[in-house]
Design a protein around this nucleic acid. Structure first.
Lengths: 261, 261
DNA sequence: AAGTGGTCTAGACCACATG
DNA sequence: ATGTGGTCTAGACCACTTA
């Protein structure tokens, strides 16, 4: 065998493809530009469409591309920084906290949430749906679970339904003294309802931020916020932009205007 | 048409499969148990292997499964909570901060990092590699970028190479007064080197935590830490466990012992 | 109606871990 | 040597958007 064969471990095609495309995106395309369709791209690189799609999926996961069925694949803008830590030590619903209450129902929370709240697994709690919009684009959907004992002013099922009731629950929360809170971030996939609200397909990758609010010596409320992982970079502390980290190890500066309040 | 046709939008097969498997995992399997192989599973459900794999991929993304080439697919334990916010306002390298210095070289950082540090795009900086292990399992790999001006005690290229030099850089950092820091979390995919260290395949989903350290009125160091997204839940604030959020919307309590620190 | 990305199939071969 | 998951192919059809 006279061939050189330097590659002891040949790189998978889709990985190499991803690298090539990534460099092309940096040099030959600008934000918002549409790429050739998948069939053409696959033919151009001499691979099957499934292989090309594997590369595109990774690039989308890293926030480099945006794909929309029936439309095409476009070059995504840099991820926007969304402040998560600045409202520290304040209740949800405080004036100008970037969230917009959408709805409120009484429902039995998932078992895990009930455990955090210390309620029975068959006890209904106020369930407030809120959504967060940045730059005119939906970036997060939230479910806020508030036991009825946390907002005694509303125990009777008299409250109006929908957005009005949501605002009422948030208003009652403000009356409590917030003693502390607690956050966790993990990767998840969008449930059907969240996906619709985030303008993504079900199963799309999301960053799930779970926050516990403490008052009166116990957990007074739990928030589960799902952020679009492709377009969002969660910032804690100073709301200044930080860095964009491309998976390939070539971060670039984020110069977006950071329009968060 | 006399058929019922209630499903206006038929659910994709892989999505339904994922739901079925998820319920099976909750009821019929225990942590660590190995599943039947992909070919058998696909046959059992009457789908192509690629379709089954699409469902398994999602479940792995959500931390429910662990797949290892040549071995098989096993039921993953609940995600472990790794504290990210507790060492707030302390330099990296402080005693018992869960990180283990591995190496240090002088290298030109990626353009984005250079921008954050305010160095020229062709200036070398100390680049410290550290790794973090929880429960005997690698959970994160970090690159810490320290401009030579931040640690003037080491400007000469006399320092020993490798781990010793890494410790020296960290030690010098402690001498500065930390004025603040700044964090951002985003989704990324593991670079080849990180993947090897995290015992994952390249491209595996990771949570990238970028931290800026401020001292002397400027950015004195930048840390880019990549955490395994499948096994880790990043906790901020109190190091107590929070919640596990299964993508399907059925969170369950995390009862793991939280061995942080 | 045409064009896009999303889903699905039925194969094949490869890299890796284990016995 | 065997069995596992990982990669890849060449097609097909579907759901969605836009014109």
């Amino acid at each position: 065998m006279g061939t050189t064969q330097l590659e002891t471990v040949p790189e998978p095609k889709y990985w190499h493809l991803k690298t090539v495309l990534s460099e092309a995106l940096d040099s030959e395309f600008s934000v918002g530009e549409i790429l050739p369709n998948e069939r053409d791209l696959a033919a151009r690189f001499g691979v099957a469409r499934a292989t090309l799609r594997q590369a595109l999926e990774q690039l989308e996961l890293e926030g480099r591309l945006q794909r929309r069925r029936g439309v095409g694949t476009t070059v995504a803008p840099p991820r926007m920084g969304v402040a998560v830590g600045t409202e520290q030590h304040s209740w949800p619903g405080t004036a100008g906290d970037a969230w917009q209450p959408a709805d409120c129902t009484a429902a039995v929370p998932p078992a895990g949430i009930a455990g955090l709240l210390g309620t029975d697994t068959d006890t209904q709690v106020h369930t407030v749906r809120r959504s967060r919009v940045n730059d005119g684009q939906p970036v997060a959907a939230e479910l806020l679970y508030v036991p009825e004992t946390s907002v005694p002013g509303l125990t009777a099922p008299d409250a109006p339904s929908g957005a009005a009731r949501a605002r009422a629950v948030l208003r009652e929360l403000q009356r409590l003294e917030l003693e502390g809170q607690d956050r966790a971030v993990e990767l998840g996939s969008a449930r059907v309802e969240d996906a619709r609200e985030l303008d993504r397909l079900p199963g799309a990758p999301v960053l799930v931020v779970t926050t516990r609010f403490f008052a009166g010596g116990r957990t007074a409320a739990v928030s589960v916020a799902t952020y679009r992982a492709d377009t969002c970079r969660l910032t804690f502390g100073d709301p200044d932009g930080v860095v964009i980290h491309h998976g390939a190890g070539a971060p670039s500066l984020d110069t977006s205007p950071e329009p968060v309040t």
